[in-house]
Nucleic acid binder design. Structure first.
Lengths: 149, 149
DNA sequence: AATAAAGATTCACATAAAATGCATCTTAAA
DNA sequence: TTTAAGATGCATTTTATGTGAATCTTTATT
C-alpha cells in the first residue's frame, strides 16, 4: 500500500511554501532542494495550481505561493486530489469481473476503512505541518533572503 | 492508493473456502473460478498456508481448507500479512533522503491514518464476509457436490 | 524593444513493482 | 504404479509510476 510520490512531493511543496510565506519560491529552488528535476516537479506544481492550492506567477521575479491559508488546507484534501485513484481492489473498478461481487461485503468494509484513513488525515492541516517554521527553514537551508543558487 | 491483487485474491480464497467448509477445494477449481492461472494462485495460497490461515492437503483427493474459524480471521490481519509493505511515502523508508524529515509531522499523521485504516478493517472478520453462504455458493456456481469441471 | 527569468505544455523514455505462467518436484490416495 | 493434488523456482510480461528533454508562453527589468 503506497501513496504516489506525486502526492508526497505535492505535500512537500506545500510545506516548503508554507515555511516561506514572505516570498515567491521558484520551482527551480525546490527542485534543487528536493533533488529532482525541474520538469518533474513542474507536473506536481501544475496540478496544485489547477486545484487552486497555489498560485504561479510567471516571468522574471515570479514563483509560487500558497493561495489558501495553511489552516484551511487539509492533508486529506490534498491526498484526495493528488492521488490518481482509490480503487483499493479490483471490485472497486467498473469493469470488475469478480463473481463474488454481488454478494460480497468486502467492498464496503474496504470503503469504510478508506474513509477512516482519509478522515484521519482530515484532522491535520498544513498549518499543523509547519508549526515549527524556523526549524523547517533551517532544514531547508533557506533564510529570509533568497539563496544565491 | 492500491492494495495488491495478491491480497485481493487471498481474501477471495478465504471467502471461497469459508463458503465451502464441508469439502476440500482445489487450487485448480478456484483458479478457474477466478479466471487466473493455477501457478499464479498457487503463490497466494502458499503464502496463506505459511501464515497459518489455511491448510493444504497434497495428493489425490487433496485440496485446501481453513485452519481457523472464520470469526477468528480478521480482514485487517489478512491485509497486514499479505501486503508487501505499508511505507506510504518515502520518509517511511529507512533510506529516506527528505530534508524535511527531522522536523516533519506528516509522517506521524500518515501513520495514524494508516492505523485507522487497518483498525477499521479489524472490525470485520471472514465470518462477516460469508454470512450469506448460500448466496455466495450460487454466485460461485458450486453446490454441495463437487463440480464436474 | 530586447533580454532574461520564470512558469506551462508536450513528448518520449526509463524503471521497478506486480502480475503471470512454465517447468519441474513432491506427496499421497486410488 | 498411476494419477491427482500441492510446492518450488525461474523467467517473462505488463503496467503504473517516475523521469527528463525540448519548446512555448508570459512578464519584469534594462
Amino acid at each position: 500500500m503506497h501513496i504516489t510520490q506525486h502526492t508526497d512531493y505535492a505535500l512537500r511543496v506545500l510545506i516548503y511554501l508554507g515555511a516561506c510565506p514572505e516570498r515567491r519560491v521558484t520551482i527551480k529552488e525546490m527542485a534543487s532542494s528536493f533533488d529532482i528535476s525541474r520538469s518533474h516537479l513542474m507536473k506536481i506544481v501544475t496540478r496544485l495550481v489547477t486545484d487552486g492550492f497555489i498560485e504561479g506567477v510567471r516571468g522574471k521575479g515570479g514563483g509560487l505561493r500558497l493561495l489558501r491559508a495553511p489552516a484551511d488546507i487539509g492533508v486529506g484534501e490534498v491526498v484526495r486530489r493528488m492521488e490518481p485513484g482509490f480503487d483499493l481492489v479490483e471490485c472497486f473498478r467498473t469493469d470488475s469481473s469478480c463473481l463474488l461481487s454481488p454478494g460480497c461485503r468486502l467492498k464496503s468494509a474496504l470503503r469504510t476503512a478508506l474513509q477512516a484513513f482519509l478522515e484521519s488525515l482530515d484532522t491535520t492541516t498544513l498549518a499543523d505541518l509547519i508549526v515549527n517554521q524556523p526549524r523547517l527553514r533551517s532544514l531547508l537551508n533557506v533564510t529570509a533572503i533568497r539563496p544565491s543558487a
